[in-house]
Amino acid sequence: MRDTLHLYGSYLAASLRSQLQYRASFLMMTAAVGATSFLEFATVWALFERFGRLADWSLPEAAVLYGLVNVAFALSEALARGFDDFPSMVRSGSFDRVLLRPRSTALQVAGSRIQLMRIGRLLQALLVLAWGAHALQIRWTLEQVGIACLAIGGGVALFSGLLVLQATFSFWSTESLEVFNIATYGGVETTQYPLSVYRRELRTFFTWFVPLATVTYFPTLAILNRSDPLGSTRAFQTWCPLLGWLFLAICLQIWEIGVRHYRSTGS
């Protein structure tokens, strides 16, 4: 495990140095990514400006939720970006090189491309989170910090799982599956609003099947000290982000099936 983290660290350092070879482009991309995500938050703001409250959530409360979801999404996009580019890796034959190295395939694919300009989105999300927390005068107790970290960790695991799952399909089909963007980008869009605004079927889907809401919405309730109109308990709200890790573990198993398929067909 330590060895694995060490290697991931080496990949990270190499990516950073590669990207700093093109310093100007790196800074501009980071700024552009940050600016785009600010526009995104502007739509949330506009909605609250028009309606005041949404399912009894105020804008600062929604900002905390938005911040947590997007911090997790930005981190997973940066750390597991290699899976996003995976179809081209299969097409170009670079995946053979992955199989030729004595390490787990998932680790190598994740490390093949770590995109640090996603830091733009990360900074923006942190700013929104900080603003929301400040406006609500949240007192960050140890418990609340812990819940926030669990939520972010669970979110990173969950989004990474989705990226892994999406990549796995390119073992069978070379066509890019835009359908999956519904789960990733669509999932981010969906979960940055309180879950209680949605219909029951959608809530069930995002709680249990692709537990996006689970890993962010419920912990946010705990951080905000809100009671849940859906009736979840405090303990559930605290620990449910661990489901994100379970989801990732399942996706990695499916990934292994994909690898086995690739190794029997070679294309």
Partner: peptide, 13 residues
Amino acid sequence: VVFGQRTQLWWDL
């Protein structure tokens, strides 16, 4: 293993 047409080295490093 060396592939003549594909380097295994990191391009920008």
